[in-house]
C-alpha cells in the first residue's frame, strides 16, 4: 500500500521540464515587462534623474490634478467615442457584407472579398496619408467629387474641425479594418450547414427571417468575439491618429486618445518633457481599462452566450 503513495509524492519534474521553454519566453517577454511597468508607475524622478518610490501619487496626479486629469478624461472619452463608432459602423457593415458574400447567388464573391480586405493589408501610415490627401480642402479630390455629384455644399474640412476630426478619423479606421469582422463573420456563416437554411426555407421563412431567426443566433458568439477584438484594438489604437494628426492629436486635442496621450507623456513632445514613470502610470491605466472590459465580456456576456454545435 505504501508503494503507490510514494510514487504519487514524487515531484513530477518532467512536467516542469516540458513547460519550461514556453514559460520562460512568456515570463521574459510578457509577464516581466508588464510587472515592471506596473512597478515603475509607483516611482517618481527628481531633477537629477534619481528615482524614488512615491506610492500612488502618480495616479493621484493623473486623476485629480486638473493639469493632468483634463487631458486624461478627454483622451478616455475620445477613445470611447472612437470605439463606439467602430461598434456602430464597422461591425454592422462587416456583418452586412458577410451576409452578402455568403449568398450563393452572388457572383465574383472572392473578388469582392479580396477587394474589401485590401485596405487592411496596407500600412496605417499609408492609409492616413492617402486619406489626408483625399480630404484636404486644398489639393484633395473629395471637394471636386462632391460638387460633381451635386453635394458640393456639404463639403467641409472634416479633418481640421474640432467637431468632426475624431469622427472622420474613426470612419477612416472603419474603412481600413472593416475586412476583419467581415472575414470572421463570413467564416462563421459558411460553417452553418446548408440543410439548416433549406429547412427554414421549407418552413416558409423569408431570406430576412432566416437571417434573423437562424443565422444571426448561430453567429452571435463570433460577433461577441469581434466586439472584444474591436475593443482591445481601439483602446490600443495610436498609429492612425499619429500619422494624420501627430502626437498633439489636434485640433486642440479633439482627436487625442489613450495611445497618443501615453506617447506624449512617456516620450515628451515639444514643450512637454517626457516622464518614464508618469508614462508607466498611463500605460497601467490603459491596461486596467482593457482588462476590465475583457473581464466584463468574458464573465458577463460570454457566459450567457452558448456555442451551438452545428
Amino acid at each position: 500500500m505504501s508503494q503507490p503513495s510514494s510514487i504519487q509524492r514524487r515531484f513530477p519534474w518532467h512536467i516542469l521540464f516540458f513547460l519550461a521553454p514556453g514559460l520562460l519566453i512568456y515570463v521574459t517577454f510578457s509577464v516581466y515587462p508588464l510587472l515592471d511597468t506596473l512597478w515603475l508607475g509607483l516611482f517618481q524622478e527628481d531633477e537629477t534623474g534619481q528615482r524614488f518610490f512615491a506610492g500612488i501619487s502618480n495616479y493621484k496626479t493623473l486623476l485629480l490634478d486638473a493639469a493632468w486629469s483634463e487631458p486624461f478624461w478627454n483622451a478616455l472619452w475620445n477613445n470611447t467615442k472612437f470605439f463606439l463608432i467602430h461598434m456602430l459602423v464597422q461591425n454592422p457593415i462587416g456583418l452586412f457584407l458577410a451576409a452578402l458574400l455568403s449568398s450563393p447567388r452572388l457572383r465574383l464573391s472572392n473578388t469582392y472579398r479580396t477587394l474589401i480586405f485590401m485596405p487592411t493589408m496596407l500600412s496605417v501610415v499609408i492609409i492616413g496619408f492617402v486619406w489626408q490627401l483625399l480630404l484636404s480642402p486644398i489639393w484633395g479630390i473629395s471637394e471636386g467629387f462632391l460638387y460633381s455629384i451635386g453635394l458640393g455644399q456639404y463639403f467641409d474640412a472634416w479633418l481640421g474641425k474640432e467637431s468632426s476630426a475624431l469622427i472622420t478619423l474613426a470612419l477612416i479606421s472603419v474603412w481600413q479594418f472593416v475586412g476583419i469582422p467581415m472575414m470572421l463573420i463570413y467564416a462563421a456563416m459558411l460553417s452553418i450547414p446548408d440543410d439548416l437554411i433549406d429547412a427554414s426555407v421549407v418552413d416558409g421563412s423569408s431570406a430576412w427571417q432566416t437571417f434573423w431567426h437562424v443565422k444571426l443566433p448561430l453567429i452571435l458568439p463570433t460577433i461577441g468575439m469581434v466586439s472584444i477584438l474591436t475593443f482591445v484594438a481601439n483602446f490600443n489604437a495610436f498609429e492612425l491618429i499619429y500619422a494624420v494628426k501627430g502626437a498633439l492629436a489636434g485640433p486642440n486635442f479633439s482627436t487625442d486618445i489613450m495611445g497618443t496621450l501615453f506617447y506624449r507623456t512617456f516620450f515628451g513632445f515639444q514643450l512637454q518633457s517626457g516622464s518614464i514613470t508618469m508614462g508607466a502610470a498611463v500605460a497601467t491605466l490603459m491596461f486596467l481599462i482593457i482588462l476590465v472590459g475583457v473581464m466584463l465580456y468574458l464573465f458577463v456576456v460570454q457566459r450567457r452566450m452558448k456555442r451551438f454545435q452545428l
Partner: peptide, 11 residues
C-alpha cells in the same frame, strides 16, 4: 421535408 442531417435549429 425531413433532411438526412435532420437540420434541426441548434439554438
Amino acid at each position: 421535408m425531413v433532411f438526412q442531417s435532420y437540420a434541426l435549429y441548434p439554438h
